[in-house]
């Protein structure tokens, strides 16, 4: 048995993570810039730069903070009428970078190179499916125009409340 995996697979994962951060912050910045918020476009760029700098620390917090910042930037961008599609791409890429960081950290504990490669392949496949589906459905949702009536809003609110209670119950069960 060897130590943590540091082979070609891990390097590829690293590069993919960096690329995701670049794409995420690039898309967010482009969205801002194209909407005429040139100065504000520095914000996602700064988030990306900081994320890239601090990700070497191998801390879970860096990815978490990066994702929160990118989501916040995307939400603000949407509210400022920056290109919603760019924001969506930025968010999906941020989600990917966040996931790859956590996965890379977990994979360090897998000492068998073949096993690590197989795990990596499976993970990337599922991530790709989730990303593509999310992006596709998101873009589709951006195209849809529907007028929400009060009843629909109430229904959505109820779904949210039920969902939230489910999540809380699930988390409580996990804690036990």
């Amino acid at each position: 048995m060897q130590g943590p995996v540091r082979g070609g697979g891990a390097q590829a994962l690293d590069m993919l993570g960096v690329a995701s951060i670049v794409v995420s912050c690039g898309a967010l910045a482009a969205g801002y810039a194209l909407a005429g918020w040139s100065i504000a476009s520095g914000l996602p760029a700064a988030i990306g730069a900081l994320w890239l700098v601090f990700r070497k620390r191998n801390s879970t917090r860096v990815g978490d903070i990066g994702l929160i910042a990118a989501t916040g930037a995307a939400a603000v961008g949407v509210m400022l009428d920056a290109g919603a599609a760019w924001m969506l791409v930025g968010l999906v890429a941020a989600l990917t970078a966040w996931d790859l960081e956590a996965f890379g950290r977990w994979l360090q504990d897998c000492p068998i190179a073949d096993e690590a490669r197989a795990l990596q392949r499976t993970h990337l496949q599922r991530l790709l499916v989730a990303d593509l589906l999310g992006l596709g459905l998101g873009l589709l949702a951006l195209q849809l125009r529907m007028r929400l009536r009060l009843s629909v809003l109430v229904l959505l609110g109820a779904v949210l409340a039920i969902g939230l209670s489910r999540v809380v119950r699930y988390l409580r069960r996990q804690a036990e």
């Binding site: 995307a74 919603a84 924001m87 969506l88 968010l91 999310g134 459905l137 998101g138 951006l142």
Partner: peptide
């Protein structure tokens, strides 16, 4: 559009 952002 904010709701669409939540989808992924």
């Amino acid at each position: 559009r904010l709701l669409a952002l939540a989808i992924p």
